[in-house]
Design a protein around this nucleic acid. Structure first.
Lengths: 195, 195
DNA sequence: TGACGTATAAAGACCGGTCTGTATACTTCG
DNA sequence: CGAAGTATACAGACCGGTCTTTATACGTCA
């Protein structure tokens, strides 16, 4: 509460509402008027906080990145507590995501596709996000299977991206299982931990 | 001029123009007025051939499916003649596609993402296309590595989808190589053909 | 051959509606 | 006061889609 001066409540409502609508219907399909109506703010308030819709899209993706990172970390931890190793827990978290209500693929892929412009700040941010996501995955792999397993990380990243797209397009959350089994097959023997 | 009998020239121009614009900029970003201007047809001509923009989108995807099937078949054949086996030729064709000018990912994934509605005819057609594409891939795998290799097909399909998305988002055509190496690692020994 | 009907398409005005973004005036509250 | 937000009206472009008018190519039949 002490910091209500720096954080605007209206801004938070705008970002949260835009995130929900953008994810569900796409950044191009959702207009400013719709966002301000559902966030219950005036149009000028939005343009006071964001210089343009493109700017808002970028802010939403930045907010979304924090959110999905937290979500994944918590979900992985939850599955680890049930006895899975860290990599298996990652794929279990992936499948949970695929099965969650309103799942419609990856916000960053979707934004990249919709904007259709690699130079758009949101596209560049999305590409950078993917790099970070794949680094996180590589870390999980090494934590789970030792540093030698890192060489399989790029291939496993492709499996994960493919699973996301397939789960979204074909409504097949089981794509997470296919990706997991293939990932394990690509890795050295399971009990080969700690170098 | 003056030699059109059964096939409408205007219709062909509309579909080809729409395909080019939709692929380059997205189905939502490109308007009807733009298509008729670049196809050099009247608006009523378009609406005589297609009942709506959604209908045109579907027709374009159907046209695109034929085109990419032919393109892939020819490219695979070309690479096979250079001594590759059929599966390696497929991944070489994939990489050629990633490196082609104007590459912007998969039309069907893109349309699904942009339309954001699984019930849209174009989304359903896209999902069906993916199924067909994966069946073709499975056939290539069995032709190349024998029927026992078919069990790896779903995982290899994920690798391919992941490579497409990664190549498009991160401008990394080498994703095709990563996918190929992982696919080969998932398969039984190479000289194990014909059961 | 020439006349006529039909089908196709060009060209563009027009419709209601939505898009992003701006301008202005009013309210609320520390 | 001054900052933040509200409430509207508005601009100008663009959206998908309809409509009318005009031009031309074709098949049929006298």
């Amino acid at each position: 509460m002490a910091k209500r001066k720096t954080e605007s409540d209206a801004r938070r409502r705008i970002v949260e509402t835009a995130e929900r609508l953008f994810y569900a219907e796409g950044v191009r399909a959702v207009g400013i008027d719709r966002i301000i109506a559902e966030a219950d703010v005036a149009k000028m308030t939005l343009y006071n906080h964001f210089s343009s819709k493109d700017d808002l899209i970028l802010a939403v993706l930045q907010y979304r990145e924090e959110k999905v990172n937290e979500m994944f970390a918590q979900s992985i931890e939850r599955h680890e507590k049930k006895g899975m190793d860290r990599l298996e827990a990652f794929f279990a978290a992936l499948k949970d995501w695929f099965r969650s209500t309103g799942f419609r693929g990856c916000s960053f892929i979707n934004a990249s596709v919709e904007l259709a412009d690699p130079g758009h700040p949101a596209s560049q941010f999305s590409a950078a996000h993917k790099e970070g996501f794949h680094n996180m995955l590589k870390e999980i792999i090494t934590q789970s299977r030792g540093p030698k397993a890192a060489s399989a990380a790029p291939a496993i990243a492709l499996l994960v991206e493919g699973a996301i797209v397939t789960a979204a397009m074909e409504r097949r959350p089981d794509a997470a299982d296919v990706a997991r089994d293939a990932a394990l097959a690509l890795l050295p023997m399971k009990r080969n931990r700690r170098t």
